[in-house]
Nucleic acid binder design. Sequence first.
RNA 1: GCUCGCAUACGAAUUGAG
Length: 245
Amino acid sequence: VVTFSTLIDGLCKVGELERAKNLFMEMAKFCVIPNNFVYNCLIFGYCKAGNLSEAFYLSSEMERFSLSPDIFTYSILMKGLCEMGRVKEAAKLFNKMTKEGIIANSVTYNILIDGYCKNESLEKGLEVCSLMTEKGVDPNVVTYSSLIDGYCKEKKMEAAMGLYSEMVIKGLAPDVVVFSALIDGHTKDGNLKEAFRFQKEMKETGLTPNIFTLNSLIDGLCKDGRSRDAIKLFLENTENINGCQ
RNA sequence: GCUCGCAUACGAAUUGAG
């Protein structure tokens, strides 16, 4: 089963759903019984391809092997719904999961929070954040980066900075994603100075600028008519871009 | 038969229109 799921997972991740599904069928010929793992890989593949009906169908089909959706299955389906802008349904699914006695973990909460921030409102995201804290699940770097990015996208930089300080005070180490959200937010807010200050701060914590942070800054410089500075920045950092997608 | 291990889920940028 591990062999099959590794292969199926790989195929799903690169979007080769037909082949993944065929391999899934092949399992029976080898008398290999599918488990949650294999189903989750397939469900992930269909969600990523935007085929939610097939994903949900598979999740219901699991019971033929006396399997039932687990926390991975629910998280994957919730993420799929959020990607389609269907956060309300994701929240319903979250409740269904809880009713079935599955305890949500940080990933599950983070998916909902990110979904709310991107599709509904930051307030809802913050609500879920309080909820998770109440339930004894600690917000982590991903939680914060979703919320911070939410504020940045709305150009509410003071609020974003507030969350940034909050996480630092809590002892959570901001990673390159958090910095990237802040750098991009400040750039798009027209505050390149502050964006560069964060790039500096990021370097000081030992993190390296990557394709995301550099694109934000380069784009900001270009749109500010400072293409020479943009080129300079690019040339100074070519080694940080190598090997990135 | 039991226990354990190996494979699955969350956050950031760039891409004007026809």
